[in-house]
Design a protein around this nucleic acid. Structure first.
Length: 642
RNA sequence: GCUGCAGUAGCUCAGCCGGUAGAGCACGUCCUUGGUAAGGACGAGGUCCUGGGUUCAAGUCCCAGCUGCAGCUCCA
């Protein structure tokens, strides 16, 4: 028999050959890293027979697919260990997830992290034993019966719910057998480095009305080093948690008397926000946007017209009675922008119109989802709506993509771009969707932007471009979004007069680059670990005195730095210099300018920078020039290990 | 919202079996006037989340609420 390799060449194998035979035939490095085989686009066990003429590709343990297999197999190993260590446990489901795996179980007692060492030890034993994962299939009735006999009610339910005609497969490794679609690693020894991370409650099938199970999370890698690196990143992420840094650096708080999910911006973080806002506005003015302001509350009527009240009511704050009429705190800015547009009869000659607002909105998010600044109930959107003609659409999208790139670069984010297309449930005609989606595609192509298509991932009212940010810890964040709204122009009858002197429905683009300032800036805190680059830092330079007699000279230097446009504070207390350096360092400020007798005599400061440490003497004017350049260029200094 | 856990000084936390609350840092005053990651002494600071209950007695035990944290989506 023959199979076709990825390079297009054919490979002859003995009849009935398996993936493992292919590995042997190819030999060399594959023997060390092949864990499965991709047969015509389907990943299968190495033990599976290869069909004649199939296109085959071996799956590297290090690849995304390989890691997923490895983690899924690790979940099985963990399940086996749990059954051994905590007898009487019933297994529910145990998939691989983004950075690891979990298994949901119903255990006779509470499982805690104290159980992890024993579980991990048992897992190591299983891994060392190097037992093969062996697939078998069983008829439905037999499978259900077997599951019920052994008391595996969750497995029994899963099997019953599998669609008629699907193969019901099991994987056995040693004494342990689990219902599983597969595929799996060839044997347990491939699960090289594994670690259990946490345990939490989870509902059977995600349904809060059903049995609550215990979910044990873990992760696995192909070797110890990679696992350690992953654990280090987790550690680092914890240290950078914006809620912790928010307290340490005095950035923000919430208050019980004010309410959950409502952020108090302290002076330092408010300064960061102002700096971002000013930059944001400057970039918008350059691109022909106009500022608008709209009220925080509005009569319910507008949300009836917009449809928000119909589809979105449980996410809105309750109405308040204003002179007998129900009013709402605004959950969106768009309806108000439309109202501004509609105050005049618009000609195609004045389009595109670009309205921008940093509009604060309030949404009644479920209490359990609130999370620091990242998930809140009151937040400011960097919202803008572009009203244009169909012919202008692609060009406008291009303009937004350019804006996105400028802003994201300034913060040091790289990003990935997705084109999200029509979902199964949608408003509007396929033709409208086609035209709008095409315009997005054209804009992406014209900018030469690589993108992935998220088939069916659009909002029900809009195809969109979604951009995901990659931060300094390689974590993904929800980033800019650009949507072609196919709903509101109709609901509000938003029109312009065309060259033909007839009314036409306007094209409305809804776009946010930063998203919510709360979420974005909360994310920035983590991205920079609280150490904002010079252009963003709330205090760019601190002036510290060596002794109290230098205070007067310090005041002069502070004034000079302020006159040079820098954000400055001073530390003229009676503490020793070492103490002040430590304080400055913990505050994560970019520069410290020290003044003692020598500096005053020479008319300089002794400069210390976050990036390079003690830099020696510089004149104030030289320092101002340097800081100004870094601000202008939005320099992000290389990280210094601390 | 649901489940579990937590809430003690501004912050981080200790407080045993129920017997009227403690440390470090921060803060204030004083001494020290110093050269690149914590100088010293003294002091002030508490509705122990809120409200009920049990008890001679509650930070501690019970109930309810509030707030926070984790999870509840990533298809056997």
């Amino acid at each position: 028999m023959k199979v076709i390799l990825p390079d297009g060449s054919e490979r002859a194998l003995a009849d009935g050959a398996t993936g493992a035979d292919l590995v042997n035939a190819l030999g060399g490095r594959w023997a060390k890293k092949a864990v499965a085989v991709d047969v015509d686009g389907q990943v299968q066990d190495l033990a599976a027979r290869l069909p004649e003429g199939a296109k085959v590709k071996l799956v590297d343990a290090e690849s995304a697919e390989g890691l997923e297999l490895l983690r899924h197999s690790a979940a099985h190993v963990m399940a086996e260990a749990i059954l051994k260590v905590i007898p009487g446990t019933r297994l529910a489901i145990g998939p691989a997830i983004a950075d690891g795996f979990y298994y949901d179980v119903e255990a006779p007692r509470r499982i805690t992290p104290e159980d992890f060492p024993a579980l991990e030890e048992e897992m190591q034993r299983i891994i060392k034993a190097d037992v093969a994962f062996v697939r078998s299939e069983r008829p439905r009735a037999e499978a259900v019966q077997k599951a019920e006999l052994s008391g595996d009610k969750y497995k029994a339910e899963l099997i019953r719910d599998l669609p008629e005609g699907t193969a019901i497969s099991f994987y056995r490794s040693g004494d342990f057998e689990d219902l599983c679609r597969g595929p799996h690693l060839p044997s347990t020894r491939w699960v090289k480095a594994v670690k259990l991370l946490s345990v939490a409650g989870a509902y059977w099938r995600g349904d809060s009305k059903r049995q609550q199970l215990q979910r044990i999370y873990g992760t696995a890698f192909t070797d110890r080093k990679k696992l350690d690196e992953h654990l280090r990143l987790l550690e680092e992420a914890k240290k950078r948690d914006h809620r912790e840094l928010g307290k340490q650096l005095d950035l923000f708080s919430t208050d019980e008397q004010i309410g959950p999910g409502l952020i108090l911006w302290h002076p330092r973080l408010a300064m960061v926000r102002r700096t971002i806002e000013e930059f944001w506005w400057a970039e918008h003015y350059r691109r022909g946007y106009w500022p608008v302001y709209t009220p925080h509350i509005a009569s319910e009527q507008i949300y009836r017209t917009s449809g928000h009240l119909e589809n979105y009511a449980e996410m809105m704050y309750a109405p308040m009675d204003i002179d007998g009429a129900p009013y709402r705190v605004k959950p969106m800015n768009c309806p108000a922008h439309i109202k501004i547009y509609q105050t005049a009869r618009r000609s195609y000659r004045e389009l595109p119109l670009r309205y921008a607002e940093l509009g604060t909105v309030y949404r009644y998010e479920p209490s359990g989802t609130l999370h620091g600044m990242l998930r809140v109930r009151g937040f400011t959107q960097d919202d803008a709506h572009i009203f244009c003609t169909p012919e202008q659409l692609a060009g406008e999208i291009e303009g937004v993509l350019d804006l996105v790139d400028t802003l994201m670069r300034a913060f040091g984010y790289t990003y990935r771009t997705f084109l999200a297309t029509m979902p199964p449930k949608h408003l509007g005609t396929e033709e409208e969707w086609g035209r709008a989606t095409e315009a997005l595609r054209v804009a992406l192509d014209r900018r030469g932007l690589a993108y992935e298509v998220d088939e069916g991932g659009g909002a029900f009212y809009a195809p969109k471009i979604d951009i995901k940010l990659l931060d300094s810890l390689n974590r993904e964040w929800q980033g800019p979004t650009i949507q072609v709204d196919l709903n509101l122009p109709k609901r509000f009858r938003v029109e312009y007069v065309g060259a033909d002197n007839a009314p036409h429905e306007v094209i409305m683009v809804h776009r946010a680059v930063l998203g919510s300032l709360e979420r974005f800036i909360g994310g920035l805190v983590e991205h920079f670990g609280g150490a904002f680059p010079v252009w963003l830092a709330p205090v760019q330079v601190r002036v510290a005195t060596l002794a109290e007699r230098h205070a007067e000279a310090a005041a002069k230097v502070v004034a000079e730095l302020r006159a040079g446009g820098l954000r400055v504070d001073e530390d003229c207390g009676a503490e020793k210099l070492g103490y002040k350096v430590r304080e400055w360092s913990l505050a994560k400020l970019p520069y410290l300018a020290v003044l003692g007798d020598k500096e005053i005599a020479e008319g300089v400061v002794a400069l210390r920078s976050r990036a390079r440490g003690d830099e020696g003497k510089v004149t104030v004017s030289d320092f101002i020039a340097r800081a100004q350049r870094e601000i202008r260029e939005k320099t992000i200094e290389a990280k210094k290990e601390d």
